[in-house]
Structure formats: structure tokens, C-alpha cells
Amino acid sequence: MEILKVEHIKKVYGKGEAEVIAVNDVSFEVEEGEFIAIIGPSGSGKSTILHIVAGLEKPTSGKVYFYGKDMYEMNKKDLTILRREKIGIIYQFYNLIPTLNVEENITLPIELDKKKIDRKKVEEITKFLNIDNRRKHLPNELSGGQQQKVAIARALIINPAILLADEPTGNLDSNSSEEIIQLLKKANKEYKQTIIMITHNLEIAKQADRIIQIKDGKIM
């Protein structure tokens, strides 16, 4: 089943002489359960594509259909709620809330949704990611790899329809990077989690089912 359809999206920044076309007429589809890697050099527009797909940045032109619905026809609040309920996002620099501990960071999207927290699920995910012994720690008490696992847990706790990972290993050493990639693969295989991952590393990209190459804002 097709979860995501991106149609001729274009993103332009600035005006006149300072105009930059970050994404230039990009189209692709994502089926349920797919693990896609978008690869390209720095400045190729891959992060911009991810932000557009996540509903964080409106394209200058083009459409993004999520389960057949045009995302950018929704109002801001509905888009935010969609993100809260259906889209999990993992960033290169983790972006955890520094004043909340691991467990609180993980359950944050659920609390924002005013839903009851399933503690069993939290336990399950933290065990899956091997951070269950760190649940009461603050982010600054964790290593980079551990922080990224917390970010993954936060993204997975909502059972997202799609998980978007923006250079998830960009800030990690090779061992931690390998661990994260294996976890993502496991989530994809065992839980049929649909994943779009941004990377500039071909070796990491090869771990995905499909690779989309981007250069100068266009699909190669």
C-alpha cells in the first residue's frame, strides 16, 4: 500500500540573485514497510526533501500525499497532529528535551496527545533499544549513541506510519552508527516499520531496500 507520494516538489529559497533552488522537481513514492535511503552530497537537498515530507517545510510547488491526502491542504494544527500521530522523526543531533529524563523524552509525543501512557510499551521499546537501564537519566548523562536511541524510541512510541531519519548516524562513531543502523533495520524487518533515511554515506545507504540518489536538488 502506498503511504507516501511526492509529486514534483520544488523548494526555492531567497529571491533574485540570492535565489537557491534546494529541491528541483522531485517525485517518488513510498510503499508500506519500505526502507528507503536518500543519498547525496552536502547541499544536494536531501534534508529539505525530508523536511517537506515531514510537514515541517512547505514546498514552493508540488504535492505531498500521505495516505492519499494532500498534506499541505491541511491547516497548521492538523499537520502538527498528523506529525504527532503518524510521523516519527529522528535528527542527526538527537534534539532531546534537556530537562526531561529518558522516559519522559520518550513519552513526550503521547503526553502532547493527551493520551494514556502504555508503560509496557515503553519498557518494550527501551529493551529493544537497550536503554532500559537509563530510563531515569537526563540526556546530558548519556553517550551520543544512547541519546540517538532515545530519539528513536521517542519516534517509535507512537507507532508511526512512517519514520523519517535525518542523518541518524552523522554524529556518532562507527560502532554506534552500526548499532543504530541495525536497530533501524530490525524495526523495519520485525515491525514492518516504513523508514526513509537520509545519509551521505553509501555504505549506510546500502543497508536500505532502495536508494534514491539526489544531486543539486534532483533525483539522479
Partner: peptide
């Protein structure tokens, strides 16, 4: 600013 942006990105509405 960053914290509010993170909250927004994971589903915190403007109202919240």
C-alpha cells in the same frame, strides 16, 4: 527557541 521547535516537530501544537 530550539526546544519549542523540537516540540513542534514531534507534534506540539502552537496552542500547547
Amino acid at each position: 527557541k530550539k526546544e519549542y521547535a523540537i516540540l513542534n516537530s514531534i507534534g506540539g501544537t502552537e496552542g500547547q
